[in-house]
């Protein structure tokens, strides 16, 4: 996907929100969009999603299926969460009724399916917003502050989902101002300011740099897993007996064993 000399302002009389944006996102890439409040992060993401149209310039090579998770989910609608997602699935042309249930379960929405959208907590509404964007696997996933309002368990789902989308050749754009990006070590960083958008490789992005992954596993499997990791050329730094609360999110990240096995295979194939 390419931004070609994209300029944007909200009305003829207002100042330019974004100027001269020239940038490219490759298939399989994750881009984290950074910048201070009001710098235009959300605007840039909405341009990428095709929700806003550039005032000048154009966006090329956008994939056909785009998932957009808005910054605030529009909860002012007279539907229950389950009804809303089923309707959005039908609108997306999904005929398989289990497609919706899969995401409801995965995003821990099962107990909220009969709750009206207006009565959902902010975090739960955010998960409904996430689910509707993922019903069809998107070629471009745009996440506007996806961590906002999510609890610790749900936060760990996002890196997982991002990895799945990019592993299938999709692109992901994420905005973030809370430093959650450490969960996306491969991401490219874009900084939005009044001077435009600057792309910078993430400091850790070079292939040689190391990242630290915290994993929780059953004691009975630990010895074997450590041996396997060492055999694969990784350095195992520390083995800890108890998992303190703060580490739960690191642990849940790779909690599902099938996905943990999938991830390295997907990396190689892309």
């Amino acid at each position: 996907m390419r931004f070609q000399d994209v300029w944007f302002r909200y009305s003829r009389r207002s100042d330019w929100t974004l100027r001269e944006v020239d940038a490219t996102v490759d298939p399989g890439a994750t881009v984290v969009v950074l910048g201070r409040n009001g710098a235009g992060k959300s605007t840039l993401l909405q341009l990428a999603a095709g929700v806003l149209r550039p005032s000048r310039g154009l966006l090329g090579d956008r994939p056909a299926v785009i998932g957009w998770v808005p910054e605030r989910f529009p909860a002012d609608q007279p539907f229950t969460a389950g009804d809303y997602l089923r309707r959005m699935a039908t609108i997306r042309g999904i005929t398989d009724p289990h497609a919706v249930d899969r995401w409801i379960e995965r995003l821990l929405l099962t107990e909220h399916t009969e709750t009206r959208l207006a009565d959902l907590s902010k975090g739960t509404a955010q998960k409904v917003g996430l689910a509707q964007a993922l019903l069809v696997r998107p070629g471009l996933l745009v996440l506007d502050e996806p961590w906002e309002g999510l609890d610790a368990v749900a936060r760990t789902l996002i890196p997982d989902i991002v990895t799945e989308v990019t592993a299938a050749g999709g692109m992901v754009l994420v905005s973030d101002h809370r430093g959650e990006i450490t969960a996306l070590p491969d991401a490219i960083h874009w900084t939005v300011s009044e001077h435009g958008v600057h792309a910078a490789e993430s400091p850790n992005a070079s292939a040689e740099a190391e990242v630290i992954v915290e994993v929780a596993m059953r004691r009975s499997e630990a010895t074997q897993a450590v041996a396997q990791l060492r055999a694969a050329g990784h350095r195992v730094l520390r083995i800890q007996d108890q998992v303190p609360d703060a580490d739960v999110r690191g642990g849940a990240f790779l909690a599902e064993p099938d996905r943990a096995q999938e991830a390295p295979v997907d990396r190689e194939s892309r």
Partner: peptide
């Protein structure tokens, strides 16, 4: 329909 929902519908169809 809220504006954001209209945009979501626009992306969908």
């Amino acid at each position: 329909e809220p504006d954001v929902q209209r945009r979501l519908a626009r992306l969908a169809v």
